[in-house]
Simulated assay, not measured.
Amino acid sequence: MTVTLQDVAALAGVSMKTVSNVVRHYQHVRPSTRAKVQQAIDQLGYVPHSGARRLASGRTGMVAFALPAIEAPYFAEMAALMSTEVEGFDYRLLIEQTAGGIDEERAVLQGREHGLIDGLVFQPTLLSAPDIEKLRSTTPLVLLGEIPPPPAVDHVMVDNLAAARTATFHLLQSGRTRVAFLGRNHDVGHVTATLRLAGYRAALEERGAERGDDLLIPMTRFGAFAAEAAVSDALRAGAQFDGLICFDDLSAIGAMKALARSGRSVPDDVAVVGWDDILMTQFTTPALTTIRPDKATLVQTAFSFLRDRMGGERGEGRHALVGFDLVVRGSTAT
């Protein structure tokens, strides 16, 4: 016979509402009560009927994660973390890719998935706060990334200014005197690139290090191939640098290939720092020094905010900064 919610409640000696709260991972349940209900669930072999519960609640049990590029390792890792996080609360994850396009970002906010999802975690790259406020639907929303949010929208980010300063200080403290930046921002709408460049410049100024446009290596687009081409062009043009801060790990990997082809050794001739600590950074030769954002906490915080909003939380938007570390490996070893 099918075990019901009523059976669990009777065995545990609690109300059906309490059993429902435990099954739905409602946080305001006493640990002793939760343990008693869980024991009854285990003893009876009760399996929650998610479809019936969602029909009764008017919810779909689905949340969306909209990100710029699924093929980028950083976002792939973020999507995997988000999928694991939402499954822990009996949700399923819908992945949407905007490909860094303004029209795709608008479509995400205008509710093209209206009726299919209960909430949305979104990392825009181009939309401004007024755009987001104007376009967003009634679907609960949490933003990731560096674009400033509207007042009523929750937002989770890493301090890119501080992280870029930390990476640049690391190279200067190791004795590098001409530190270049790969990923100069040509697109004024790309807030992340702007902040990382600003942090790099601030560190150079604080330490009185050499600065100048000749130390800014432009990339018209992001990725390993673009980085390899940009560094190769800069070297052929006579660029001189002994340290390199890269926009992300893929850029750093492309830069290291260009340096090797030109006969320059990493780290003896040029020390290289990447960003994101994607898995493959441990397998480059040498292994890549990189900024490691706390991706797990970022995802957990974003989904915690979203659960609150899906549960009826109102009011001003909350803003959370998650931590980062500089992971020092062979590409900057001296």
Rank of each mutant, 00 (worst) to 15 (best):
G145H: 08
A258F: 06
P151S: 07
K295Q: 09
R314P: 02
E146N: 11
L279N: 09
E133I: 00
V179G: 00
C246A: 01
P286M: 14
E313S: 14
K17Y: 03
A180M: 08
S20G: 12
A76F: 10
Q282V: 07
P218R: 09
A255F: 13
V23T: 07
I291A: 06
E205S: 13
A229R: 14
P48V: 00
A52W: 01
D214M: 01
L306M: 04
A80W: 08
L204C: 14
D294L: 03
A107R: 15
M82T: 15
V3Q: 07
R176F: 08
T4K: 06
A76G: 12
E71Y: 13
R307S: 05
S251N: 03
R329P: 11
A72W: 12
L250Q: 11
I70V: 15
G119M: 05
G263W: 05
Q39C: 02
R307N: 01
D233S: 10
G212H: 01
L279T: 14
R329E: 10
T194G: 08
L5K: 07
R54K: 10
D118S: 04
T98R: 11
S57Q: 14
Y91F: 15
L259N: 10
V86K: 07
A226K: 04
V270P: 00
C246D: 07
A12G: 12
V322M: 02
F181H: 15
R207D: 13
R184H: 14
S32N: 09
Q110T: 13
L120T: 11
V270N: 02
K295R: 10
L216W: 02
D276R: 05
A202L: 12
G100V: 06
F225I: 13
R318F: 01
R318T: 00
L93E: 09
I245C: 08
V14H: 08
P150T: 01
V266N: 13
A252H: 09
Q97A: 13
F222C: 00
R264F: 06
I70N: 09
N185M: 09
E316S: 11
K17D: 02
V179D: 02
A202T: 12
L244T: 00
E104F: 12
L321F: 10
T284N: 10
T281I: 09
V22F: 12
H49N: 15
E77I: 01
H186M: 06
R112G: 05
T301R: 08
C246E: 05
G119R: 06
R221Q: 14
L67W: 02
L93Q: 05
S50L: 15
P267H: 03
L81Y: 14
L216E: 12
R53D: 00
S128C: 02
A252S: 07
V270S: 01
T332R: 06
G254W: 04
P130A: 10
F241P: 03
T334Y: 03
S262F: 04
E96W: 13
T334N: 13
A302T: 01
G312V: 01
H49L: 07
V3A: 03
D277Y: 10
H28Q: 12
A180E: 06
V37S: 04
V121H: 04
V188R: 03
L161D: 06
